[in-house]
Design a binder for these strands. Structure first.
Lengths: 208, 208
DNA sequence: ACCTGAACACCGTTCAAGT
DNA sequence: ACCTGAACACCGTTCAAGT
């Protein structure tokens, strides 16, 4: 064995995208062991880099989590906009609700960090605040459009958007926290909650 | 100064209810600095007690947080039942919704620990699972009664309860996370969300 | 019974030093 | 530029010892 073939077969430096590798390793660790089980030292060890290599890409642990949350809001917004822009009608808004809850279930690590207040209070980081606001704005936009189409009550769209957000956020949290554990129960709750939500904010009763 | 008058004027042992004092100090620290800012050493120091005194009352840090969560579910259930039993009608169910959100706002430390997954996954502690189930059951009971009174749709009461829970939980989380920060916005969202929720699950349209 | 201080293994972070 | 190893202050937890 030459000295080059060690436990970690690696060139002297970590090549290319260490930042992305750190984010991915953090996401995997959060998925497996939760946010409080995340340690910077173990991330470095798993990637075969020094404990301090991370500080070349993130100011500290909080900055790493902030980056996770920021990326999460961007991915969520992309999912929501993608669903909405297929037709910009009532069916697409229902699809947005499904997409929101599916995002949380498929990206629980992102979702937990986004909403579990592990980042600095009051969204101090401007990037994070911008992405979070953009995701919320996608919801407001769809509500304004459906109000224009006379499908929704003419209430304050921001207030209505907060209500819609509360519903899908509540379902998502119950789902990823395992509070709804029977097989199919998440899908059942998603469908029921979105249908009751629609009835609650619709301009006219569906039978009218 | 005699040796008895030290920095911490205290009898040799902590008298009486150290367990309660530890819980209260933990709640205050969580309120001021968040769950991740909670350290057992500082709690002991603040109470003028050794770092290890806590282990006479709690197995470990997780057990302390589990106790906080368990107490939170008990207090929440008491608030909900108290609101409901004033009349067991539609107005009292609305009051339960208000009480739920007010509980979260008045006891944010309890609420965060209850729902932020700082306790063992899958609610391993039977006491915690029992209290959480009891709080949920109070909601199911009120739904069954209002269905019997023909005020609510005759859907599966557990499914409807999960939906109602998702709505109030979503509003509560947005509120205590400071996502709704303008003065009066929380009360506005609470009133709006509960009214839209009622419309969504009511048996008949209110105008009929 | 309840509490204490020393000790152990661990963590985030800093820094002078390497390539 | 990017990475490294040693060092520092901190934390949860254990344990033999005190009253």
């Amino acid at each position: 064995m030459s000295p080059a073939t060690r436990r970690k077969p690696r060139k002297s430096y970590h090549h290319g995208n260490l930042r992305r590798a750190l984010l991915d390793e953090a996401l995997a660790t959060i998925r497996d062991r939760g946010v409080e089980g995340l340690t910077l030292r173990e991330i470095g060890a798993r990637l075969g880099v020094s404990r301090t290599a991370l500080y070349r890409h993130f100011a500290d642990k909080s900055a790493l989590l902030t980056a996770v949350a920021t990326e999460g809001f961007r991915l969520l917004r992309e999912d929501l906009v993608s669903s909405w822009e297929r037709g910009k009608g009532p069916a697409e808004q229902q699809a947005m609700g499904v997409a929101y809850i599916r995002f949380a279930l498929r990206n629980p690590s992102h979702y937990r960090v986004m909403f579990s207040h592990f980042v600095d209070p009051a969204l101090q980081h401007p990037e994070l605040a911008t992405e979070a606001a953009a995701a919320f704005q996608a919801l407001v936009d769809s509500i304004v459009e459906l109000q224009r189409q006379q499908f929704l009550r003419p209430d304050d769209p921001v207030l209505m958007a907060r209500h819609v957000w509360a519903v899908v956020h509540g379902v998502a949290m119950l789902a990823i926290d395992g509070q709804v554990c029977e097989p199919g129960a998440v899908e059942q709750l998603t469908g029921y909650a979105l249908e009751r939500l629609r009835t609650g904010i619709a301009r006219t009763a569906p039978e009218a």
